[in-house]
Deep mutational scan, measured.
Amino acid sequence: MDVRRLKVNELREELQRRGLDTRGLKAELAERLQAALEAEEP
């Protein structure tokens, strides 16, 4: 998933699904989601 191409509301939805903080600027949201995705990979 390319988090840079997601819209802010899409980033927030993905973060919320993972129980993560949904507050912040788009860059912060993308960074948070990217870190979560990398942590999920085996």
Rank of each mutant, 00 (worst) to 15 (best):
R5C: 04
V8Y: 15
L33W: 01
R23P: 04
A30E: 14
K26L: 09
D2R: 06
M1I: 05
T22S: 14
L20Q: 09
R32F: 00
R5Q: 15
L29P: 04
V8F: 14
A36S: 13
T22F: 07
R5D: 06
A36R: 07
A39C: 14
D21Y: 01
R12Y: 11
A30H: 11
L37M: 03
A39K: 14
L11D: 03
R5E: 10
A39L: 11
V3L: 09
R17M: 14
N9M: 09
L29V: 05
Q16N: 15
L29F: 00
R12P: 01
R23L: 08
K26T: 10
V3C: 15
A27T: 10
R23Q: 13
D2Y: 00
L37W: 06
E13K: 07
R32Q: 03
M1V: 03
A30P: 03
E40R: 08
R18S: 01
E38W: 05
E38A: 06
Q16S: 11
A36M: 04
E41C: 09
D2L: 03
D2V: 05
A27W: 09
R12G: 03
Q16P: 01
L15R: 01
A39F: 01
D2P: 00
Q16E: 14
E31W: 04
E10S: 06
D2H: 02
D21E: 12
E14S: 07
Q16H: 06
E28V: 09
T22H: 12
E41S: 13
E41K: 13
L6E: 05
L15V: 02
A35P: 04
A30R: 10
E10L: 02
K7Q: 11
A35T: 12
R23Y: 14
G19A: 07
E10D: 10
G24K: 00
V8N: 07
L20P: 01
R18G: 02
E13N: 11
L37Y: 08
R32C: 01
G24N: 00
G24C: 00
R17S: 12
L6N: 04
R32V: 01
L25I: 15
E38F: 03
E10M: 13
A30F: 05
A36Q: 10
N9E: 15
V3W: 08
A30D: 15
L6T: 01
L15M: 07
Q16A: 12
L33T: 03
E41V: 12
G24W: 00
A39H: 13
L6S: 02
R23C: 13
L25N: 14
Q34P: 00
E40Y: 00
N9Y: 13
E31M: 15
V3K: 08
E38Q: 12
D21M: 03
G19E: 10
E10G: 02
L11I: 08
M1K: 03
V8R: 04
N9V: 08
L25P: 15
Q16L: 11
Q34G: 11
L20G: 06
L29W: 00
L29C: 08
K26F: 04
M1S: 00
L11N: 03
E40T: 10
E41D: 11
L11A: 02
R18E: 03
L6W: 05
D2T: 12
Q16F: 05
L33C: 02
M1D: 00
L29R: 03
E38T: 07
D2M: 07
R23V: 13
A35E: 11
A35D: 12
R23T: 14
R17Q: 07
E40W: 04
Q16G: 13
R4E: 15
R23W: 06
L33V: 04
R23S: 12
E31A: 13
A35K: 13
E28T: 09
Q16K: 11
G19S: 08
L20A: 06
K26N: 09
A30S: 12
R12H: 11
L11C: 01
G24I: 00
E41L: 10
N9Q: 12
L37K: 06
E28I: 07
R18I: 05
L11K: 03
Q16C: 15
A27P: 11
K26Y: 11
Q16Y: 11
R17L: 13
E14P: 00
L29Y: 01
K7R: 07
R5I: 11
K26E: 15
L20K: 12
A27Y: 14
R5N: 14
R5S: 09
E10R: 05
E40A: 09
R4H: 15
D21I: 04
V3P: 13
L33A: 02
T22V: 13
R17A: 11
R4V: 09
L6D: 01
L29M: 14
L29S: 03
R5F: 10
D21K: 06
A36G: 05
R12V: 15
R18V: 02
Q34W: 06
R4Q: 15
R4L: 14
R5T: 13
A35M: 11
L37T: 06
R17G: 11
A27I: 03
E14L: 07
A27R: 12
E38S: 10
A35G: 12
R23K: 15
E14D: 03
V3N: 15
E14K: 04
L29H: 05
P42R: 08
E31Y: 00
A35Y: 09
R12I: 08
L20N: 03
L37N: 01
T22Y: 00
R18W: 01
G19C: 12
K7A: 09
R18L: 08
A36T: 08
N9H: 10
L25E: 15
L25C: 13
E41I: 07
E31R: 10
E13T: 10
L25F: 04
G19R: 06
V3S: 12
R17T: 13
R12A: 10
Q16V: 10
L6P: 02
E10Q: 09
G19H: 04
R23I: 06
A39M: 09
K7S: 13
L33P: 06
D2G: 04
L20S: 04
G19Q: 09
K26V: 12
V8C: 01
K7L: 07
E13G: 10
D21T: 01
A35F: 09
E10C: 02
L11T: 04
A39V: 08
D2E: 10
M1R: 00
D2W: 03
K26D: 14
E40D: 14
D21A: 09
D21V: 06
P42V: 11
E13H: 14
R23M: 15
R12W: 04
L11W: 00
G24S: 01
R12L: 08
K7D: 12
Q16T: 12
Q16I: 15
A36L: 04
M1A: 00
E38G: 09
N9L: 06
P42G: 12
R32M: 02
E28R: 04
L20M: 15
R32L: 00
G24R: 00
A30K: 11
E31H: 06
A36E: 08
A27M: 15
L25V: 14
E31Q: 12
L6F: 08
E10W: 01
L29K: 06
R32G: 02
K7H: 04
G24V: 00
E13F: 14
T22N: 12
V8P: 12
E10T: 05
N9A: 10
A39G: 09
D2F: 05
D21P: 15
V3E: 11
M1W: 00
A35W: 04
L33G: 03
E14W: 05
D2Q: 11
E40Q: 07
E14F: 02
V8I: 10
A27F: 04
N9C: 05
E31V: 10
T22Q: 11
R5L: 07
K7P: 11
E28Y: 01
A35N: 08
E10P: 01
E31G: 12
E40H: 07
R18Q: 03
R17N: 03
D21Q: 14
L29A: 05
Q34V: 09
E14C: 06
A30V: 09
E13C: 00
R18M: 12
P42T: 15
A39P: 13
E28W: 00
P42L: 05
E31C: 13
K26S: 08
L37C: 10
A30C: 09
A36I: 00
L33I: 01
K26R: 13
A27L: 09
R4C: 08
L25K: 15
T22I: 07
P42W: 04
E41Y: 10
L37P: 05
K7M: 10
L15G: 01
L15Q: 01
R4A: 09
E28P: 03
D2A: 05
A35R: 09
A27E: 13
E38M: 14
L33M: 08
E40L: 05
E14M: 06
N9I: 06
R17Y: 00
E40P: 14
E10K: 07
E31D: 06
R12S: 08
L29Q: 07
P42S: 08
